[in-house]
C-alpha cells in the first residue's frame, strides 16, 4: 500500500482575489481531501467559490493561505495531469470531433512529441473513446453538426484522452435538457468506473451530486466554507431507478437543508 492514499489534500486553504482592504475572500480555510479514484461532488449556491476550488486544484490560481498538495507535493503551477470540462463544451469549430479530442495530446508530453509520427495510433485511441461514449461514426463531424449532448460528450472525451489523474468538471451538464443530462450521468458513471479516474464535479444539481458521487461537499455562500461533508452510501453500481428510491430522496433533502441562499 502506497503512502499516497490521498491524491489531493487541502489544509486550511484560503484564497482572496485582489489585495489590501478591497480584497474579497473567495475561499475560507477549506479542509478537503480526495482519494485516488474517488468521485467527489461540490455543491453550493452561486458564487460560493466552487469554480475557484477547481482552479486551485488544477494549479491555475495560487492560494493565499494554507497548504494544497497533489500527490503529496505542493501545487506550484499547472499540473498537466488534469482534464477539465465546463458548462459550455468549448469545442474548436474549425476542428472535427476527432481533432477536437486530440487537442490535449498535442500539448502534453510525451504525446506531443510522438503525435506527428504516430498519428494513426492516436486516432484509433480517440475513436475508441468516442465509441465508448456513444459517438461512433461522428469523428469526422464538426461541432455544429452535433447536438448539445454530443458536444458535451466530446468535451468530456477531450478532458480524458490524455489519461489525467484527475478530472475536473464545472457544471458540465448544466445546459442540457433533463433526459440528455441523465444519459450523460450514466456515461460519466461508467467511464469513471472503467478508468478508475478521480473526479471532482462542481454542480448546482443535488440529484446529480447524489447519483454520481462518493462524497458530497456542501459549500456556504461566499466566502466559501465547507459546511457539510456527506458520504453517499447508496450501493454501486447505481442505476437511474435509484433516483426514485427513498434513500436517494433523503440524501437530496439532507443536502438541500444545508444550502442557504
Amino acid at each position: 500500500m502506497s503512502a499516497v492514499q490521498n491524491l489531493v489534500r487541502l489544509e486550511k486553504v484560503s484564497l482572496r482575489y485582489g489585495q489590501g482592504p478591497k480584497a474579497t475572500l473567495a475561499i475560507d480555510e477549506i479542509d478537503l481531501s480526495i482519494r485516488r479514484g474517488e468521485f467527489v461532488a461540490v455543491v453550493g449556491p452561486s458564487g460560493c467559490g466552487k469554480s475557484t476550488l477547481m482552479k486551485i486544484i488544477s494549479g491555475l490560481v495560487p492560494i493565499s493561505g494554507g497548504v494544497a498538495l497533489v500527490e503529496d507535493r505542493e501545487i506550484a503551477g499547472p499540473l498537466k495531469s488534469v482534464g477539465m470540462a465546463f458548462q459550455a463544451a468549448n469545442l474548436l469549430p474549425w476542428r472535427n470531433t476527432v481533432d477536437n479530442v486530440m487537442l490535449p495530446l498535442e500539448v502534453v508530453e510525451p504525446h506531443k512529441r510522438r503525435i506527428g509520427s504516430h498519428r494513426a495510433e492516436y486516432v484509433a485511441k480517440v475513436e475508441a473513446l468516442l465509441e465508448r461514449v456513444g459517438l461512433k461514426g461522428f469523428g469526422s463531424k464538426f461541432p455544429w453538426e452535433l447536438s448539445g449532448g454530443m458536444q458535451q460528450r466530446t468535451s468530456i472525451c477531450r478532458a480524458l484522452i490524455h489519461q489525467p489523474e484527475i478530472l475536473l468538471l464545472d457544471e458540465p451538464f448544466g445546459a442540457l435538457d433533463a433526459f440528455t443530462r441523465e444519459d450523460l450521468w450514466c456515461t460519466l458513471r461508467d467511464l469513471q468506473r472503467e478508468r478508475g479516474v478521480t473526479v471532482m464535479l462542481v454542480t448546482h444539481d443535488l440529484r446529480e451530486a447524489t447519483f454520481l458521487a462518493d462524497t458530497v461537499y456542501v459549500f456556504s455562500p461566499r466566502p466559501g466554507r465547507i459546511i457539510l461533508r456527506h458520504e453517499v452510501d447508496l450501493p454501486r453500481p447505481r442505476d437511474l431507478s435509484i433516483t426514485y428510491s427513498a434513500a436517494f430522496t433523503e440524501t437530496v433533502q439532507l443536502l438541500r437543508s444545508y444550502i442557504h441562499h
Partner: peptide, 8 residues
C-alpha cells in the same frame, strides 16, 4: 484554462 492546465 483547458490548455493552461495542461501546461501549454
Amino acid at each position: 484554462d483547458v490548455l493552461r492546465a495542461l501546461g501549454a
